[in-house]
Amino acid sequence: MRNLFRFIRRYHFFFFFLVLQVVALFLTLSSQHFQQAYLFHSSNTLSGYVYRTYHSVSNYMYLRDVNEQLLEDNRRLMERNRENFLITDQQVFQHEDSVYQRRYTYLNAGVINKSVNRRNNYMTLNKGRRHGIEPDMGVITGNGVAGIIMYVSDNFSSVMSLLHSDMLVSVKIGKNNHIGTLQWEGGDYRRTVMSYIPPHVDLSEGDSIFTSGHSRVFPENVFVGTIEDWEVRRGENFFTATVKMAIDHNKLSLVYVVKNLMREEHEELESAVPGDIQF
C-alpha cells in the first residue's frame, strides 16, 4: 500500500494529467449523445453576457449592412401587400377567414456571436426561453436559412448553424420541385452541397434552391441559394450540386426564429407511423 502511494506521488504529474484528460474526453464523448453539457454552450450566462457586452459595441460597425438588409426585407414585404393587387373578381374576396389557419409565427432576434471558420459552427442569439424560444425551432433571415436552435437559457440561445456537419436540411429545386438534402462539407463558408438529386433531373446554373417544407422546422419555400455546379460523384447514382448560399454567414446580424404552431400535431402523427422517417 505504501509503495503504491509512493508510486503515485512519484508520478503525480502523469496521473494528474491522465485524470484531467479523461475528464475532458468524457465530456467530449458524452456530448455526442446527451445534450446536457450545458456549461460548454455559449447560451450559458457567463459567455452570453460577455458576448452581449462586446456586441453592443461592435454592432455599430454593421449598421450599414443591417439597414440595407432591413430595406430589402421591407421591400419584399411591401410587394406582398394587399393594396398592390387589383381585385378582378368583385364577388368573393376574403383575406382572412377560417380557411386559413396560421401555422408559423416569427420572432426576431439579434446574433451576438457567430463563427464560420470551424468545421462545426454555432451562433448565439440575444433571446431565450423568456422570449418564447425553444430547442429545434428554425432560424432564418429575410433571404435564407441560417440554422436550428439547439439550447436555450433564460436570456440566450445557441444555434447550430447551417455550417455544421450534423445539420441536414431537406431542400428542393424551385423549378421542378425535386427534393435533395443540404449538408455543409467544410471549407468555404459561402458554398454548401445539395446531394441525392436524381440523375434524370435537368439542372442548370443559377437554379434556385428552397426549403422543401417536409421538415417540421422550416416553412416551405424559404430561399436557400442557387446552384453553381454539379457532378456525379464516384460510386454514386445521384447528382451532387454545389450551392452558393444566399446569406453571408459572416455578416449575420438580425434573424427570425420560426415557431411551428402545429409541430406537436405533426410529430404525434408521424410517431404513430411505424419505421424510420428521416428529417
Binding site: 504529474f13 467530449t28 460548454f40 454552450h41 459567455s47 445557441s158
Partner: peptide, 23 residues
Amino acid sequence: GMLIDVFEDSIAIHTASTVMLAF
C-alpha cells in the same frame, strides 16, 4: 482550455488539447 470551450461552444476539445500541451 475550459474557458475557451465555453466561449466557442466546442465541448472540451480545447481543454483536452491544452492539457496535452501542458503535459
